[in-house]
Amino acid sequence: MPKVPSPFKVMAAKEITDLIRSWRFTLLLLLVFFTFAASMYIGVSNIRTVFNNTQDPDHAFLYLKLLTGGDGSMPPFHILLSFLAPLLGISMGFDAINTEMNAGTLTRLIAQPIYRDNILLAKIYSPIVITATLFFSLSLLMIGSGLLITGVRIEPQEVLRIMGFTLTTVIYIGFYLSLAILFSIIFRQPATSALSVLGIWLFFTVFYPMLVNLAVKAFMPDPAYLTQSQLMGYNELILNILRIAPNQLYSDAATTLLMPSVRSLGPMSMEQLSGAIPAPLPVRESLMIVWPQISGMIAFSVACFALAYYLFMRREIRS
Rank of each mutant, 00 (worst) to 15 (best):
L81C: 13
K14C: 06
S261V: 03
V302Y: 05
E100W: 01
N235M: 13
R116F: 14
G69H: 09
V10I: 14
V302G: 06
I200G: 04
V32A: 06
N240T: 14
L109E: 09
L167H: 04
F33R: 00
I181D: 06
I173T: 03
T49A: 15
R161G: 08
M142L: 13
G164V: 07
C304Y: 13
V290R: 01
L214M: 06
P223H: 08
Q248I: 15
G89Y: 09
A279K: 12
F94S: 00
F300Y: 15
I277Y: 13
L80R: 08
L307D: 02
N118C: 02
F300W: 09
T49G: 11
A122E: 03
L179P: 01
I181K: 06
K123Q: 07
S184C: 10
A60R: 04
P113S: 01
I244E: 02
V262F: 07
P221M: 03
P5E: 11
H59C: 06
Q189L: 15
L27Y: 05
A215Y: 13
A194F: 15
S274E: 15
R108Q: 08
L106W: 01
A254N: 04
D222V: 09
A122I: 02
F136G: 00
L167N: 04
T169I: 05
N46K: 15
N240V: 12
L80T: 07
P86L: 11
K123T: 09
N98L: 10
A218C: 01
Q189M: 15
N247Q: 14
M259T: 10
L242A: 05
F312L: 00
F8P: 00
G89K: 05
M297P: 04
S269C: 05
M313L: 10
G174W: 04
S45P: 02
L84C: 08
A276P: 01
G144L: 14
A299I: 06
L29M: 09
I200K: 08
M313Y: 10
L134E: 02
V283I: 15
P86D: 10
S184K: 02
A299D: 01
M232K: 01
E100M: 08
A254V: 03
A245D: 11
L287I: 11
G93L: 07
I294Y: 07
I241D: 08
M11P: 12
V152T: 12
I79R: 07
G104A: 00
N235D: 14
W23K: 11
C304W: 13
S251R: 11
T255F: 03
M92K: 04
V50K: 04
L62C: 01
W201N: 02
I185H: 04
G93W: 07
Y208L: 05
D95I: 07
P190F: 12
S184Y: 09
D95W: 13
Q272R: 10
M313E: 10
A276V: 13
Y63N: 00
L211W: 09
F36K: 07
M313D: 09
S319L: 10
Y225N: 01
R21P: 02
A13N: 11
P190T: 09
T256N: 03
D18Q: 12
R48M: 12
F34C: 12
Q230L: 00
L160P: 02
M232T: 03
Q189P: 08
